[in-house]
């Protein structure tokens, strides 16, 4: 337990002095995760909205599959992307394995179903309300999707947040496709796993504290934004 106390002190020293190595790891984490969430939103928001406003045979199945994919195990996604990108794989020529790009791809795959499924739910509700108005105005399907996404934008922050939380906390996929290479693909979660296994509890704990703080901060910021919007009755 003494070790634990010492680790805490050391961890705070690292944070206070803003250790260079620590900064690098945090920077890469943010870059990978935020890129993955942006990609997931670019795909998942319109996809979820389209699913909400269209009716076609098999739609129920598609919805069920996407909802099911929300719980994809990260290691399985990591393995899939690994097989795709490994030199023997179909995309091997791109030489992306063990790069931040590979990590972004894996996390985007993890997060897209979350964003799409939550978007569908939010847009479904709004669509019920707007449907007759938009049809009486003669809105095309794309205009309908755009109107709904725009008017639901603050509620959709929740979808993006859920995706962000998932990507931030995830270790299995980035470990497999990134390889946790120092100065190249080491992010907070993989560093914590490594440092813990090495017994370097101070760095691990420092990273852990920062990880928790960052995710609380981002969440609080976006939730605050949403609440402000709701107070203004736009949401």
């Amino acid at each position: 337990m003494q070790d634990f106390g010492a680790a805490f002190v050391e961890a705070f020293a690292l944070i206070v002095n803003f250790d260079a190595q620590l900064a690098e790891i945090i920077g890469l984490s943010l870059r990978v995760t935020l890129s993955a969430v942006v990609i997931a939103c670019v795909i998942g928001l319109p996809l979820g909205a389209l699913l909400a406003v269209t009716r076609f045979p098999g739609r129920g199945l598609v919805v069920a599959v996407i909802s099911g994919l929300m719980g994809l195990p990260p290691v399985v996604v990591g393995l899939g992307v690994y097989l795709l990108l490994s030199s023997a794989g179909p995309l091997g020529v791109l030489q992306l394995l063990y790069t931040p790009t590979a990590m972004i791809i894996a996390q985007a795959i993890l997060v897209t179903p979350i964003v799409a499924a939550l978007t569908r739910q939010v847009i479904d509700d709004l669509h019920i309300e707007y449907d007759e108005l938009l049809r009486s105005l003669g809105s095309s399907r794309m205009e309908t999707v755009a109107t709904l996404l725009w008017d639901a934008r603050y509620s959709l922050l929740t979808a993006a947040l859920a995706g962000l939380g998932r990507a931030f906390a995830e270790v299995g996929a980035v470990m497999i496709v990134g390889g946790n290479i120092n100065h190249v693909t080491r992010v907070m979660t993989t560093a914590i796993a490594l440092e813990t296994s090495k017994g370097a509890l101070a760095l691990a704990l420092g990273l852990g504290i920062i990880l928790v703080c960052l995710s609380v901060l981002i969440n609080a910021g976006l939730m605050g934004l949403r609440r402000t919007a709701e107070r203004m009755a736009y949401a």
Partner: peptide
């Protein structure tokens, strides 16, 4: 009629969140 030639005011007004 084209959409802009016919307009409907609903019993319960539907207004966008704008």
């Amino acid at each position: 009629p084209a959409p802009q030639e016919m307009a409907l005011v609903f019993q319960k007004p539907v207004l966008l969140r704008r």
